[in-house]
Amino acid sequence: MAGLPGQAMGYDRAITIFSPEGKLYQVEYAFEAVRKGWTSLGVKSNSAVVLLSEKKYVTKLMELDSIEKVFIIDDHIGVTFAGFGSDGRVLIDYARLVSIRHKLLYGDPISIEYLTKQVADIKHQYTQYGGVRPFGVSMIFGGIDPDGAPRLLRTEPGGQYIGYHAIAIGMGAQGANEYLEAHYKHDMTPEETLELAFKAMIYSMQQRNENIKELAEENFDAGMALVETGKFGKLSRGEVKDVLSRVLS
């Protein structure tokens, strides 16, 4: 028995039980759900924060437009996620609630880190109590803080959250992150920030041998927050089409 790995010993049966190597297997498996999800990424520059997600046909008669992957949380905050769609949806609802409650209680919009922390607190609770499973999502919160600073933070299934300049999650994370690391600059216009996000996403698609020629605006969901206005908004189909044609040409 001594030679068996942790899984075989049953340490992956309950989330609240550590394996002798100090791992919580159910939480590790939740990370795996994130790694298998559609790619989402966020890029922050000194002028804007962009959130971008890919959308793909699983079956031919799917209506891709009915799937949303970038969400408005509040006037100044957006979010995207990778992993279990249903888990993501529930946490997004919660984030909206937290945000609006903050406005009600204090009279001012919430800061992005405080919001992220509260969502991450919920995720953490689901790693410490019996009879529940962890959330199988990683989320990227992006936007402009009430003090005018652009912010980009990512939560993990275990409840950890970290700030980034740029980060990609999901099945294309490796390629997209490589591209972002090689091409990231602080000093970019909103258009350049947007283009970098699309380029990184398309690079990761190429790496996964996807047919780039068939890409259309329906394969993306994007949102952007501008430092100038302090507001977060979704990109229309037309705007996505424009960026796509610039990036692919």
């Binding site: 209680l105 204090y106 009279g107 001012d108 919430i110 800061s111 880190e113 405080y114 922390k117 003090d147």
Partner: peptide, 15 residues
């Protein structure tokens, strides 16, 4: 402390 912001007078009044 948790939100890492210095609240404004408005926030006190609102609460």
């Amino acid at each position: 402390i948790t939100a890492k912001t210095k609240p404004k007078v408005k926030n006190y009044a609102n609460l």
